[in-house]
Amino acid sequence: MTLVGLIAAASAIHAWRLRPQLLDSQPPVAAERRHWRLVRSEPLIGVAVLAAVALLVAFPLPPRQLGEADDALAAQPACDPCPLPKPAADELPVAGQAGSEVVAGWLRRDRTGLSGTVRVSDIRGQPSRSGIDVLGATQSSCGPGCRRFRLPPAATVRVGVRDRGRRFVAELPARWRQGDSARARRLLRSAQARMRTLDSVRQTEEVTSGPGSYARTEYRLQAPDRMALKTNGGVQTVITGERQWLRTRVTPWERKSYGSGIPFSLRRWFRWTTYARAVRLLDRRREGGRPVAELALMDPATPVWMRMVIDERTGRVLRERLVTKGHFSTSRYFGFGRRTRIEAPVVG
């Protein structure tokens, strides 16, 4: 458990040190994507390199800052050698987890039911060789890790996958508000802008790469340029502008420079529009008496899928679920504007 927490922290810090270098003005999208492919290709950290926890990457974190999406862009290669298609205007792109594998769907709805394509990829992003079954559907193969299917009307599409000798079932939402994609994009942009104006916020993130791996990180974020985090493995980090400090359960606080001269920014932490090559409005409902909207986002070139819940009254993001190869995370945001104080630790 401790090692998993250290792995997650190392991944985050590596990403934070590299990402700001790409954030000065508007760097080329292609260069940013090469950066993140490199990040995700680095190997897992072993116990022997525990002392270098802040320098290596284990959990492949998807980019938060890749530049604003353009819904008119064509599909781009997303994995080698299996480029993923950009969803058509009448398709819902969603993804879930089955063991360590990504189960992604391109869903269509008509009067008689649901149809579409399901693609399953392994932890490396390659087409899965596992057994795949779209439960209750008429289906046919469309290549390795791929099924075309037809279902009666349903609220979810359930996909069974065998991964490392165990059977898992991923459930994909199959109801959305067709024709409301423009509204969904407006909600997304408004929520991102609102989150960037916060004085402070807290975030809890739970992340796994599949069965047997788990890390939980608690973040405190304070405008304009401060962050403090603590993992369930006992790793702690404090960042103030261009400075950062790190300690573990077995090492004291150590000061490091941050961001190659580009300071941490709370505004840069919130950049969901990078995932918005396709945006769909899944639902509008009430939770705890407040109106919320649930969105589905996809970028086929990373590739990454997200679902997020937005409080329509305040414009704040409440929850997000992120799926990409080797990384399944759930985040909750709370403590909006709550008084917090993040100070540099005493290094003795």
Rank of each mutant, 00 (worst) to 15 (best):
G160Q: 15
A154F: 02
R164F: 06
L135R: 10
V159T: 07
R164I: 04
R164K: 09
P127Y: 00
G160K: 12
S128N: 04
G131M: 09
F149M: 01
P127R: 07
V157H: 02
T156D: 03
S140C: 08
G165D: 09
C142E: 13
G131L: 09
T156N: 03
A137N: 00
L135I: 10
V157N: 04
G145L: 13
C142W: 12
T156E: 05
A154M: 08
P152H: 02
G145S: 14
S130I: 11
G131Q: 15
R129W: 09
G145C: 14
G136K: 01
S128L: 04
R150M: 04
C146R: 11
G165K: 08
R150I: 09
R150P: 00
D133H: 06
A137T: 06
V134G: 01
G165P: 10
R167T: 14
R129L: 14
P153G: 11
G136E: 05
S130L: 13
G136P: 06
P152R: 08
R167N: 13
I132E: 05
C142D: 13
D163S: 09
D163P: 03
D163M: 03
S141Y: 10
G145V: 15
R167G: 10
L151I: 05
R164T: 07
S130D: 12
G131T: 15
S140Q: 15
R167C: 03
V159Y: 04
R167Y: 09
G136H: 06
I132S: 05
L135C: 01
L135Q: 11
S140E: 15
G143V: 08
S128K: 07
V161F: 07
G143E: 01
R129H: 13
G143C: 08
P144G: 10
R167Q: 12
V159M: 06
R164E: 11
T156R: 00
R150D: 04
P153I: 15
T156Y: 01
G136S: 03
